[in-house]
Simulated assay, not measured.
Amino acid sequence: MATLLIVHHTPSPNCQAMLEAVISGAGAPGIEGVTVVRRAALAATASDVLAADAYLLGTPANLGYMSGALKHFFDQVYYPCLDATRGRPFGYWVHGGNDVTGAVRSVESVTTGLGWRRAADAVTVTGEPSKRDIEACWELGATLAAGLMD
């Protein structure tokens, strides 16, 4: 059975709505043989990353960067997971008040360094998520999970 690890930092209702849509998509009807594991960014470990086959990452944009919690996650797992996870698929979503450019750049930079392969377009949202934004988060979860089915 494949494992999809969702690592997130959800400090706001908007981030929570996006996370819930990603989780719903990952568990959509018809997706079989995939275990979805959720971890808050401050609780996720290198063991979680090594045990997973793909990753979904969620963060708010904070001061032009990913959240400190997601940065802490990457700091903890980078070297222990560097060689073993190279080439694994990932996707991510970012929420910001008015700009997510720096947060997107920071997530892309670290995942490129890890050698992870982006398996879906990022979902980026500023302001309150629209129905279309929530649907895009659902699709992100479904795409990553479906990609792990045998």
Score class of each variant (00 low, 15 high):
G127H: 12
F74Y: 14
G113C: 05
T10H: 03
D75F: 08
V107M: 11
A103Q: 03
V104G: 04
A44M: 11
V110K: 00
F90P: 01
A44W: 04
L82Q: 06
E135Y: 04
P129D: 12
G127I: 09
G27P: 01
P80H: 12
A52Q: 03
A43H: 13
G127L: 12
M18P: 01
Y92H: 09
Y79C: 06
I31F: 11
A103Y: 03
N98C: 10
I134V: 15
E20T: 06
L4Q: 05
S106H: 10
C137I: 00
V7S: 04
L4K: 01
T3D: 07
H72P: 01
S12Y: 12
S130L: 13
L42F: 02
A119E: 12
I6D: 02
Y79H: 14
V22Y: 02
P29E: 15
D48P: 02
G30V: 11
D121C: 06
A69D: 13
S24Y: 00
A2D: 07
C137Y: 06
V36D: 07
A44T: 05
E135I: 05
G64M: 12
L42P: 00
V34A: 06
A122M: 10
Y79F: 15
L56G: 08
V49Y: 12
R118M: 14
L63W: 13
G25I: 04
K71F: 10
L144G: 00
A52M: 03
G33D: 12
W138D: 02
R132F: 10
F90K: 00
T85G: 05
V7P: 03
V123G: 10
A84T: 15
Y78C: 11
V36Y: 04
